[in-house]
Amino acid sequence: MNRFDYARPATLAEAVTAGALPNAAYLASGTNLMDLMKGGVARPSLLVDIGRLPGLDRIELLEDGGARIGAMVRNADLAYHPAFARRFPAVAEALLSGASAQLRNAATTGGNLLQRTRCAYFYDTASACNKRDPGAGCDAVGGENRLHAILGFSAQCIATHPSDFCVPLTALDAVVELLGPQGPREVKLEDFHLLPGSTPERETVLEPGELITAVRLPAAAADFAAHARYVKIRERTSYAFAVVSAAACLRLQGGVVTQARIALGSVALKPWRARAAEAALCGQRADAAAFRQAAETALQDASPSGDNAFKIELARRVVVRALSLAASGTPARLPALPASAFSGEVAHA
């Protein structure tokens, strides 16, 4: 890896000043950044370690029913926070379906939002990648692209965002709190990541130096606690990124959907909110026909970006399953294999 400077600021103000320097990168737990640096994909000249900044590691359950999650809160700490998991069970389920226990113990809230795609051509510095090297081309097109995007991709980039955590967060209207040299601001998570278009190198709305300080879930997000699930299809039972995933959160009244929230993961370069499907579900009976119709609507704009047409139908079925599970109610305890199609195991959480 390249030689770099390392700074460990004591205050948020110092951090964003340092983070705005040319070619600086924030270092949280480094579960993704270190791999990128070892592979020569990321070559920052300054690492700004935010690991010891005060106040970023708090989980605040707000009185209005929402929650505020500090950017340095570890995935495992959040998932195993009992009161948080009760209010936002699909979020806990998504967190525990991600990575491995060791990674979840280290990986942070802010870092999860900012993890990079798993596209092999992005990680391989000998391949052409518009995201890594704007204008270079995209070797994923026509290459090994079985797991690539089916929504929102462009000729310049067909990668996906791999996060599990971000999927229910997007469904639940999470808000990202930012601090930059110009001061604080907020962005809806749904608007935080950018689709590739002709500028796949630009992945988020973050301005130079801007730092994620917290992620907030609004009070209304807790209203779905009784009917909130996350379903993740993965090629081995643990430690695998999603082929496709979906979060489904419902409010029901007498078997009729009064509100629905649906988001999909690993289908696009951002967590994919299916607003049209949500709207179509409202007022419908919570049954298989309505769920299938919602799934059709959610994927109506999907198309293969390569050897991945199966992901479109798979995504429909994942939406149906997530909605069905949500309708039948959030389980009292997290399943032993969170978000897995395979249940019936002894719960561990």
């Binding site: 491995s100 798993r118 092999a120 051509y121 990680y123 391989d124 000998a126 290459g143 090994e144 090629e235 081995r236 039972t237 643990s238 430690y239 695998a240 990124f241 294999l337």
Partner: peptide, 17 residues
């Protein structure tokens, strides 16, 4: 070239498998 030359993407079973 092998595009999954790492343990995150070159899958072998984990205990849960």
């Amino acid at each position: 070239r092998t595009m999954n030359a790492n343990f995150a993407e070159y899958h072998v079973p984990v205990n849960a498998d």
